[in-house]
Design a protein around this nucleic acid. Structure first.
Lengths: 334, 334
DNA sequence: CGGTGTTTCTACAACGTTGTAAACGGGATT
DNA sequence: AATCCCGTTTACAACGTTGTAGAAACACCG
């Protein structure tokens, strides 16, 4: 079977605890013994048994990342950054997909799987105010998304309202008056949809433009297909509009595709603006004007925040909320 | 602290081993005791300590998935399927990014992190024939990608050569003669680039078209930017071509963007064809004709293969290679 | 050379679980 | 009524590691 501390100890002629000390960088070891032990380790190819280590120490050096779906590009890019940031900190990342479903989010929070984990970064969609209790467990949780409810955990977020407002104002400033939005979703209680809609409305109000409900198109999930579907809807309903604000890039891209199929020119006839600044956005035709919400900063900060909470006794500190800087990235589509 | 078997046992008035037996579904338990125990479990909210369980049983119910980068859409979509398939089998997935770098791939294979894992699904780019030894460890490994070398592990793959050939033939059959390819990469010893290039050349040979090296554009990584860059290259070099075959969709999309910037019409002036059938491909403008390589089948099969290898004693069976069915998905771009 | 203080090393007891083997019942068999 | 047997439960010993506390080795001093 696998090589253990005892095997190494025997070969090196020391007690197995000394080997453990060498492995863990305990300072008081004579250079000669250290070398002996290290040679034995190398010779046998010893690797610590991490299960045993976790059992004993309580630490797993693993975090969980839970996102709705990894095949939504936004979450894929986010996950990529989170995993990279975690690795830099010596942590391994375990990825869960919730489908944005409240039940699955709750099930995950209660799952014993998480106890092989030091903490969780959760990007929730379905959870609501009444689910605060599920977060009360001993496991540190960092939420991605604004602190809409009184949840007892840290939050790292983008500035959904302000960014959506800035995006909308950008459209207004470039002369658009009838701005459709895609992505509204009443079911999603805490999510970005609500907040981005609020930003949109704030912008309209600030610019003295009346809010017209007919310009609002729903989309429960934010795939390209949902954006396309919503756009078909808008076109079918015969609502007039000169711009579309997709609540994320994939929605916007789906919509843009349908617009052009319908013979409308982007941006001449209809401006299109997204949210996320996916890699894809820069290569769309026309390239997609969008909001860069600070994805990488969010990922790094989420990991750092989680680590702080895990390590030592950050446990008692007040829940923090931190928001990334954003910017509107002007391209061809608006 | 956390609730243990002992705590439950005490409350239920049985030995802790009986609780363990209940938890593990051991059959010989009187209904009355089972109920007592289950009530105690519920009351205390007992959850098994998975580290202890792993230590004792040797199983972790975790698999690792290693891909070059999660922000390459192909790998994101693949990961999404793998994680879902693993979850169905009751496994948790731990995701690693290798950057497609040989050293990091090797480092991962030797990392003690993997010993908290029952097996590994690896999508290698840099590994070569000489690295077979690194795979000889006790950990079951399933490779994604053709069995180019004599590696002692299972392979699940797409039909790179045949699919690339079919794609190229599709272009030829629609009248194209000067077909550029993007994605060649000599550094990548075992990867898809070589195989897809071979398919391309086979198609040309079969159709009696001469292979012209000037039509081959390199791209080490397969991001959109690399596709764009390669296309600029082709255009700058003044090579004539009436079609472009991107070795994956993102390359093709990056290239398509540059083509249209340069005032070339797709598909009238230049046909564009990709590989992967990303969600994105259907919504590009024009929508991207591409190869569906059977991503979901690959993911499910990889998980199933790994599971077979893990469970019981699939360990001794001969390494298997299984390849997915593919199809050319005709859309607007070619 | 004995005493003192420091460094280095070790013995032992956990951590919470599962496998093994044996103990405990009570109903059927003799 | 003593025996056997099967279904049910239990005690005990691992799994490989780290924390604690103390033993051993060593250096230094008077």
């Amino acid at each position: 079977m696998a090589v253990t501390l005892r095997d190494v100890a025997e070969l090196a002629g020391v007690s197995f605890k000394t080997v453990s000390n060498v492995v863990n960088g305990y300072p008081h070891i004579r250079p000669a013994t250290r070398e002996k032990v290290e040679r034995a380790i190398a010779q046998l190819g010893y690797q610590p048994n991490l299960s045993a280590r976790s059992l004993r120490s309580g630490r797993t050096d693993t975090i969980a990342l839970a996102v709705p779906e990894l095949n939504l590009s936004y979450f894929a890019e986010l996950a990529s950054f989170v995993i990279a940031a975690a690795e830099e900190a010596g942590l391994v990342t375990l990825v869960e997909q919730t489908g944005g479903d409240r039940d699955r989010e709750l099930a995950l929070l209660q799952s014993p799987r998480l106890n092989r984990t030091d903490g969780l970064i959760l990007s929730p969609l379905g959870l609501g105010a009444e689910d605060a209790a599920a977060l009360a467990g001993p496991l540190p949780v960092v939420m991605l998304g604004e602190r809409t409810f009184e949840w007892p955990c840290d939050h790292v977020t983008m500035q959904n309202v302000a960014a959506a407002r800035a995006a909308t104002e950008y459209l207004v400033d470039s002369g658009r008056r009838r701005i459709a939005v895609i992505g509204e979703n009443e079911a999603e209680v805490m999510g970005s949809a609500r907040l981005r809609l609020r930003g949109y409305r704030e912008a309209l109000a600030a610019k003295g433009i009346e809010y017209d409900e007919r310009l609002v198109a729903r989309a429960t999930l934010w795939h390209r297909a949902d954006g396309a579907h919503a756009m078909h809807d808008l076109l079918d309903r015969g609502v007039e509009f000169d711009a579309v604000f997709g609540f994320n890039d994939t929605l916007a891209l789906g919509a843009m595709r349908v617009l052009q199929e319908a013979g409308l020119r982007v941006p001449q006839d209809v401006a299109v603006l997204g949210f996320d600044d996916l890699d894809e956005a820069a290569y769309a035709i026309p390239s997609l004007t969008t909001v860069d919400p600070g994805r990488e900063w969010i990922a790094r900060t989420a990991v750092a925040t989680l680590l702080a909470r895990i390590s030592a006794d950050g446990a008692d500190a007040e829940p923090q909320t931190r928001a990334a800087d954003f910017s509107v990235v002007a391209r061809e589509s608006a």
